[in-house]
Design a protein around this nucleic acid. Structure first.
Length: 111
DNA sequence: CGTTTGACTTTCG
DNA sequence: ACGAAAGCCAAAC
């Protein structure tokens, strides 16, 4: 395969690694996740990658929400994500909203 | 190469 | 607090 293909795979891999670093009971926004992977202002791209994420991947994709502290997944998928977060101890409001001041993950702390 | 699209973000009313 | 509009960026057409 070509170098360009490698670059694309590497970019996704970095995002996966960053996502894997999010502990249960915490959430992170698309923008923060992208920045954590080394790509600032790539929030949309991060969302696109998660959408294409295979089901067999064991990554905590449900810990990723938007900057408004709300689940971006439409329909039943959003309800499913809420259930997963609740099961990890994250409090989710009826409007799929989460208190970022309590559950937002900061890598530069607690370690 | 120009246009459209989107699991985003921020600002304004 | 909520919705609309604009801004931003990469991938798909």
């Amino acid at each position: 395969m070509t170098d360009s293909t490698n670059a694309q795979t590497d970019a996704r891999q970095r995002l996966y690694t960053a996502l894997a670093g999010i502990p249960a009971g915490y959430v992170i926004t698309y923008g923060q996740l992208a920045a954590l992977a080394g790509f600032s202002r790539r929030a949309r791209w991060a969302g696109q990658v998660l959408k294409q994420l295979p089901q067999d991947s064991r990554l905590p994709w449900h810990r990723v929400i938007n900057a408004q502290g709300k689940i971006s997944l439409p329909g039943d998928a959003g309800e499913k994500q809420r259930a997963l977060l609740e099961s990890e101890g994250v409090t989710v409001s009826d409007s799929l909203r989460i208190d970022l001041s309590l559950f937002s993950w900061q890598k530069a702390d607690t370690e």
